[in-house]
Amino acid sequence: MTSAFLSPVVASGLAIPLEWVVGLGLALFAVGLLGVACRRNILIMLLSVEIMLNASNLVLVGFSRVHSEISGQVFVFFSMVVAAAEVAVGLAIVIALYRLRRSADVDDAHDLHDVDYGPVPGLKLEGEPHHHHDHDEPEAQPVGATGEA
């Protein structure tokens, strides 16, 4: 296996060992993961998601070449469409968030996790009388919210 792994092949696209393509894809995915996990700027987090999507595209193209199957490249096409949709909606959320908070820092958007809503209510089984928190009730404004300020 090792000799075949290193032996030069004349055919152009097949000269590249698939293991290297997959390895490059994995490394790029790890870089993207690092960006999403360690950065707090929401724009750079979205860019890191793009890096991860591109890593998967590279692996798809690599397998498509080795198996001589065009469907892999069609999947890359679909993946690009999904990436475009994701960027459009993601950047719309960024703009809405910036309008509300004047910042591109994800930690400034903490309405859902910094407010203490009290202990988690226990599981209600069917048939038992319901808690009177119904969905049509207007949501109570949390104490720490700054959106209306």
Binding site: S7, V10, P17, H67, S68, E69, I70, Q73
Partner: peptide, 22 residues
């Protein structure tokens, strides 16, 4: 991963025509 010798004959057309047909 397919062996280099086994896959050295595989052809793949990555042109717009082939992608469009698929």
């Amino acid at each position: 991963f397919p062996d280099a010798a086994a896959r050295s004959t595989l052809e793949l057309d990555g042109s717009a025509k082939a992608i469009g047909e698929s």
